[in-house]
Amino acid sequence: MARSETGEEKKQRGVQSVEVGARLLDALAARREPLALSTLAEAAGLSSAQAHTYLVSLTRLGLVKRDALTGNYEPGPLSLRLGLLNLEHQPAYRAAAPRVSALALATGMSVAVSVAGPQGPTIVRYERGGYPLHVNLHVGTVMSLSATATGRIFRAFDNDARVAAMLAHQAEAVAPEMAARIDEIRARGIERSVDAPSPGVSSMSVPVFDGARRMQLALTAIGPTGLCDVDWDGALAHALKDAARDITGLLS
């Protein structure tokens, strides 16, 4: 007579192939950068042939994607959606969301919320303003650490180790002139870009901290040059700083 399973044994039963596939996803998350098949297989404790079989299915599901040029694997669109779902429950994002909508409505500028990602500062919420923009920004866009106001805000205020990892991914060198600029950004608490990195588009960006002064995200207002007030003491700068201060207050 076959032995009946106890309730605990039934409760713990899982699908082994799912758990093996999760090891590949965990390896991608831990390294925070696109990985070659061999590197990914080694990190997950699999042979390259085994890893490839699992990655085919994970790619079909959208949990990973493969770069057509390098052949490296990175998180896919479904992973991004799951990450955003998790992010929506984070205190900083939840506090920022209604203020981003209000900021876009009050200023007419588009407003982006960005967090540190494995490839660089990544837009996780984008509220379109009243002015049309000739630039392709959307949720998932990765911002340059040097060429954008958002990126320079992260370089100035985010965790040193996280900034170093993002710089390495973007192959950014720490140029002497950039170091001086970062010091100026820290003193001002705000950064701007005029006609850069896209002609005709300007922006201002501020950091948002938690109660322990750890940077959580960046708020960036973006609009057409000439309509986007980039004065350090202008109305847009004050609106951004006020919004950041309000969010921080909710996190203290």
Rank of each mutant, 00 (worst) to 15 (best):
M143R: 11
K241T: 13
R155M: 12
Q16F: 15
A165C: 11
G21A: 04
E184R: 13
A116E: 02
R181A: 15
T122H: 00
V230M: 08
G223E: 02
N72S: 12
A179E: 15
D229M: 10
G62H: 05
L69P: 02
D26Y: 13
T39W: 09
L240T: 02
D67V: 06
T107P: 03
V163C: 02
T225M: 07
Y73M: 03
P75I: 03
I247S: 05
F209W: 09
L37V: 02
L82Y: 11
Y93F: 15
A239M: 03
N136H: 15
T53S: 15
E8D: 11
G226F: 04
S114F: 00
E88V: 02
M143A: 10
Q50K: 13
A116Q: 01
R32D: 14
L35P: 05
I185M: 07
Q50Y: 07
A44K: 04
H89P: 00
G140P: 05
V163E: 06
R152M: 10
P121D: 08
L46F: 04
D67P: 07
A106D: 14
H52G: 09
G7D: 14
G62D: 06
E127W: 00
T141R: 01
L217K: 03
V142E: 00
L84C: 00
M166R: 04
D242F: 03
L105F: 10
E33P: 06
A212R: 14
R188Q: 13
E191K: 04
A49D: 15
Q170K: 08
S203E: 06
E88T: 09
I222T: 05
A92Q: 00
R66D: 08
A196D: 09
V174L: 14
Q12M: 13
A156F: 03
Q50D: 15
T39V: 12
L37D: 04
E172Q: 12
A175R: 15
A179S: 13
D229W: 12
L69W: 12
V18R: 14
D195L: 07
R125I: 01
A173W: 08
A68F: 09
P224M: 04
L219Q: 03
A112M: 01
R81I: 02
A22G: 05
Q216E: 15
R66N: 11
D231I: 01
G76D: 06
V174Q: 13
L219W: 04
A239L: 05
D183E: 14
L63C: 05
F209P: 07
S193Y: 10
A243N: 07
L133T: 01
L87E: 07
S79Q: 10
